[in-house]
Write a protein that binds this DNA or RNA. Sequence first.
DNA 1: CGTACTTTTGAATCGCATCAAATCTGGTGG
DNA 2: CCACCAGATTTGATGCGATTCAAAAGTACG
Lengths: 230, 230
Amino acid sequence: MIVIAYWYDRDHMTAHVSHRMDWQELIASEPALATIPLRLRAVADHLEFEAGETLFRLGDRLKGVFCVVAGEVRLIRRARNGTEIVLQRARGGFFAEASIGTGKYHCDAVAAETSAVLRIPAQAFRAALATDVRFRDAWMAHLAHEVLTLRAQCERLGLKTAAQRIVHYIESEGADGMVTLTESRKAWAAELGLTHEALYRTLRQLQADGTLHVDANRITLSHRKGAGRW
Amino acid sequence: MIVIAYWYDRDHMTAHVSHRMDWQELIASEPALATIPLRLRAVADHLEFEAGETLFRLGDRLKGVFCVVAGEVRLIRRARNGTEIVLQRARGGFFAEASIGTGKYHCDAVAAETSAVLRIPAQAFRAALATDVRFRDAWMAHLAHEVLTLRAQCERLGLKTAAQRIVHYIESEGADGMVTLTESRKAWAAELGLTHEALYRTLRQLQADGTLHVDANRITLSHRKGAGRW
DNA sequence: CGTACTTTTGAATCGCATCAAATCTGGTGG
DNA sequence: CCACCAGATTTGATGCGATTCAAAAGTACG
């Protein structure tokens, strides 16, 4: 994920088509975009938002399908008492996918940091789904994969202990008992539903009892049973 | 959810087309089936499994898309050390949706209890997706909705306290600050990632401090702020 | 009426969150 | 090049809240 800063025009405080950013580079770095037909990408709005700016609000009529190219967008719902509930933190990839079906947004979307976002008009998106077989298949595959990933994450978050979640993560996200982390440990902790302190401590403990081996961002599950009673 | 027992033929210990079950009634009770074209339902296998029976195994070539009509099917992955990880507990509705894209099953499926399952041949399913616009739209909507629901659940499971999760559930699953539970509280607790004891206690506490009101299966969030600092 | 299940409450324990702080790191600017 | 800064990483001490174990009461069903 490329972090952007100081590239926007101070004169335009609302989202606008950028002339400072290297969208080419950004787009190349976002794998989710590879499946989008070029002619669909051509009609997409290239938007940029500063931290705190609102992309859309609950109940707004669908303006398009979004894809985070850089930065972070949060989908939030405001509770009666003003508490914000974060429904999703989108760092790269599509968000508000479900809205393509309902025609309305079901929550607010706010940029958590300076972010670059692609907005594909709903009309064109639906048209492409209807006519472009490859795109449609890719889109359904994307949704199906998303479902799979999310199910795994729910199961993981249902586990009670930090050790269980770490092992589950390696076994379900990794390949052959090994993962290579692409994010900071702090971010990993958040994904595991733990504080970073708990993650560090448990990681150290699991190394000590031989359950796993840590080498920088390369974490391997030991073949021997270990002492753990996961 | 209809619970079935003692309806299978003792002579046929493997899954088979049932002659004892009232599939009509079961199918009418499962909302996910409403979107399936009749001609697709006509070619589906009506299978029944006893607790412990395997529907498919990891790596098996795709036999079809499944839909639980009654009972429960678990998608599990076996870890190196023999530990089972439950990826999904399907009680009603589709499962292994992602496999339609990959052509292979990514885990084992085992009936957790006596279950009735519809298996729609992949060929026919894909054909219907390609030709039946309404079905395709319904399927994409289903996937999108699933994504939405799962994201909400992940966010919920990321909350640290029982009170937060309960309130989040009511606000995201319920309508206008009220939910009517369709499952037992024990099952609800599992969905919330809590033990049933914790759920009961927290529920009582939230009633005591006026945060919410419980009337049998009807749970309402109080409009006043309450004492809670969720 | 008995069985199996959910619901409910109690007591003790354990693990994680929290608060605090030190160290390390990469990147910036002087 | 080095001082500096913001962030991640790491370790420590403490308390809270959920789990766990236990058990009683309620409920549905045959």
